[in-house]
Simulated assay, not measured.
Amino acid sequence: MNVIVSAVDRIYANPSMAVAALWISATTSEETPIRVIRRAPDRITEFGAGRFVSDTMMVDVRVADLPDPHPGDLIVVGADSFTIQGEPTRDRERLIWSLDLQPT
């Protein structure tokens, strides 16, 4: 195991950084408990001469916990449910998925 994998494992095990969640497949209804790091960056969208700021909800998930997420899958964090929208993307080391979520 290399140092980066070990560091990612420690970050996701830390309750101050990551929270428990549940992934539910849209196609097979399979459920898997996962840990996620929640992010909520503002997104700026330009339309003509106007610029609009909108809230977003994103989570980062270890590839080891969730090997194959797809758009339409459900992520449940506490009492909140979200649908994965758009294609999931991985980091350079291929250890972490970034998922763009939409409230359901």
Rank of each mutant, 00 (worst) to 15 (best):
A40Q: 14
S16W: 12
G50E: 15
I4D: 06
G72P: 06
R90T: 11
V19F: 09
T32N: 11
R10S: 10
Q102G: 03
R90L: 11
D65K: 06
L22D: 07
P67Y: 05
R38Q: 15
D80G: 03
D9I: 08
F47E: 14
E30S: 12
N14Y: 02
D9A: 10
V76N: 04
H70E: 13
P103N: 01
V59S: 00
P71V: 01
I11N: 01
A21P: 08
R38G: 07
R51G: 04
L66H: 03
Q85L: 09
T27R: 15
T56L: 01
P88W: 01
P71M: 02
T45W: 07
A7R: 11
L74D: 07
V77G: 01
L74W: 06
V77W: 03
D65I: 00
E87Q: 13
N14C: 08
P103Q: 04
I34L: 07
I75Y: 09
T32M: 11
T83L: 15
Q85R: 13
D55C: 07
R10E: 09
P69K: 03
T83W: 13
L22Q: 10
R43F: 03
S54T: 14
D91I: 02
W97A: 02
A21I: 04
D65E: 14
D68A: 14
D60R: 14
A13P: 00
S29L: 14
I84A: 01
F82R: 05
V19Q: 12
V36E: 04
A79P: 08
S29W: 10
S16H: 13
V3H: 08
D60W: 03
R35Y: 06
Q85M: 12
A13W: 06
E93W: 10
L95G: 00
I75A: 02
I4M: 11
V36D: 05
E31G: 07
G78M: 08
T32Y: 05
L74Y: 03
I84N: 02
D100M: 10
T83S: 13
W23L: 03
A64W: 06
G72I: 00
I37R: 14
V5K: 15
F82D: 05
P88M: 02
D80P: 02
S16L: 15
T104G: 10
R39A: 12
I75V: 12
R38V: 14
A7I: 11
V36T: 03
